[in-house]
């Protein structure tokens, strides 16, 4: 155990695990209660387009993926607001567009690497210092904003019309929430992988929902489940030599089934 913790890559992975575990489970409560699970999936695939472009340009993919995914999330929300199309239709359009772009970008690369596989399924070896810096900045921003915006987001999640009647700027709050969710998804991808990111966001919040009578308790429990599953998942990933995303999701699923049995 001490040997494992003395390894730099593992230290980075554990810190990143705690950071993305916090972000995913914190924003997950809004995703679950607003029935936006498909958006998590859509944005993860949007990030794939950005990452592929980063790989093609041979620059740090995260620096391209963050603005790329942000633009897509704004596009999704804009189409919902400005047209009569439902959000899932809007997500479906951008989902396919981003994956198509991603495939084209990767096919344009002159040499093949395993990078793309890492991004699809997540790996503890892939976390570098710049990922940690971005994640830390986002977590600090999210914690600061969560004090100011949790109440507004919670109120608008309960009933947007009621929040508007109380003069909350729900449109701005929604865009901010979408933007932060997008960034959180992108920075979680290296550990969790594109394929599993939607579940990573949803399962801790869903488990917390089963055991909570209030939204505040749900948020706290979801964060606790998110942190525990990330840490335990990463340890298992190291000891069993398995992809980190899959092991984290496995722990989350175990917590979910325990919550279900406790609920009964």
């Amino acid at each position: 155990m001490i040997d494992m913790l003395s390894m730099t890559f593992m230290q980075r992975a554990l810190i990143a695990g705690l950071l993305v575990g916090f972000l995913g489970s914190y924003f997950g409560v809004f995703i679950v209660q607003r029935k936006m699970s498909f958006m998590g999936d859509g944005l993860a695939h949007a990030a794939f387009g950005g990452i592929a472009l980063g790989l093609l340009l041979e620059t740090e993919p995260m620096w391209i993926a963050v603005p790329f995914t942000l633009i897509i999330s704004i596009g999704i929300t804009l189409i919902r607001d400005k047209t009569s199309l439902e959000m899932d239709t809007s997500i479906g359009i951008f989902f396919a567009l981003s994956v198509a772009l991603g495939i084209i970008f990767i096919s344009l690369r002159k040499h093949y690497t395993t990078d793309a596989f890492t991004y699809m399924f997540g790996s503890i070896l892939s976390v570098n210092t710049s990922d940690l810096i971005i994640s830390s900045i986002i977590v600090v921003i999210s914690i600061v904003l969560s004090f100011k915006f949790w109440r507004k987001w919670a109120y608008a999640t309960f009933d947007p019309e009621l929040a508007k009647a109380d003069k909350l700027n729900t449109k701005f709050d929604d865009y901010l929430l979408s933007a932060l969710i997008s960034i959180s998804i992108v920075i979680s991808i290296k550990l969790v992988g594109i394929v599993l990111i939607a579940s990573f966001l949803v399962i801790p919040a869903a488990s917390a929902r089963l055991l909570s009578s209030t939204f505040f308790k749900m948020t706290i429990l979801s964060v606790i489940f998110g942190l525990i599953s990330s840490l335990v998942g990463l340890f298992l990933s190291y000891f069993l030599d398995l992809p980190s995303g899959a092991t984290i999701i496995l722990i989350q699923a175990i917590i979910f089934f325990i919550a279900m049995s406790l609920k009964k």
Binding site: Q33, E161, L162, T214, K217, M218
Partner: peptide, 14 residues
């Protein structure tokens, strides 16, 4: 203000 109750989500934990 008392809204129409049919419009809001009853699954919200509150």
């Amino acid at each position: 203000y008392v809204p129409q109750i049919k419009t809001f989500d009853r699954s919200f934990p509150a």
